[in-house]
Amino acid sequence: MDTATVKKIAKYLHLAELEKREVPRITLQYPELSVEEAYEIQEHLVQIKLEHGHNIVGPKMGLTSQAKMKQMGVDEPIYGYVFDHMVKSGQEISLSDYIHPKVEAEIAFILGKDLEGTNVTIHQVLDATEYITPALEIIDSRYENFNFTLPDVIADNASSSGVLFGTLLQPPHKLELDLIGVTLLINGHTRDLGAGAAVLGHPAKSVAMLANMLGRRGLKLKAGQVILTGGITGAIQFEAKDTVSAKFAGIGSVDFVVKE
């Protein structure tokens, strides 16, 4: 795929995000699109967003559950980037800011040190992590009906679109991150649940794999970045007037109300 096409597709996806409009998935027109080319498109998309004055908060992991990897036929997760304009502070979000959003409960890592290499271990991750905090990630594919193949979703910045963080920050060492029980509730009803181990066996494993995937591309995780490690629960749809909340054992909760 030539650079002009890569740039054209990145603009196409960026426009869909700006206009909050679902578009046909790109593999309909480019059925041969490879994972490698998809990451090139994602890099251009990231570049466009940086040129628009947005800043990277940190990378995020996607397809971290066995169920999702099986569904997509892959044995490695994917990553994308969360930008500052996607972080919602306060307790409300507007449905009109999204196309067809879904929410999942995750644990976020805040790095105190860089993580670089292709053999980064869980221990190095925990050592480099200053804090963890609970998060609700809002994913919103730019594709029609949330329907995509692996290269499509990679090019689309792993469906990144929003995140709300918890208010408690804790050092990771005191916690058994894989045994943190999580419930995701909508209007008080439990809609999904799980424990930290749902994310690749341990949320820190997700960060280690992310560091290694970036390492293979000559990139690294940087001190200060906030990393979303992947859904402990499945992605759940919500509607206007819903109250969405997630409870995380020992590390607090995150809530938001959905406006029109």
Partner: peptide, 27 residues
């Protein structure tokens, strides 16, 4: 402890089969 938020991991032959939490049992 808070029984409703206890996380659980179930393994078969060392492989994670699924995860759960106390609230899975009638909340």
């Amino acid at each position: 402890i808070d029984l409703t938020q206890i996380g659980m991991v179930l393994y078969r032959n060392g492989e994670i089969m699924n995860t759960g939490v106390g609230a899975a049992a009638l909340g």
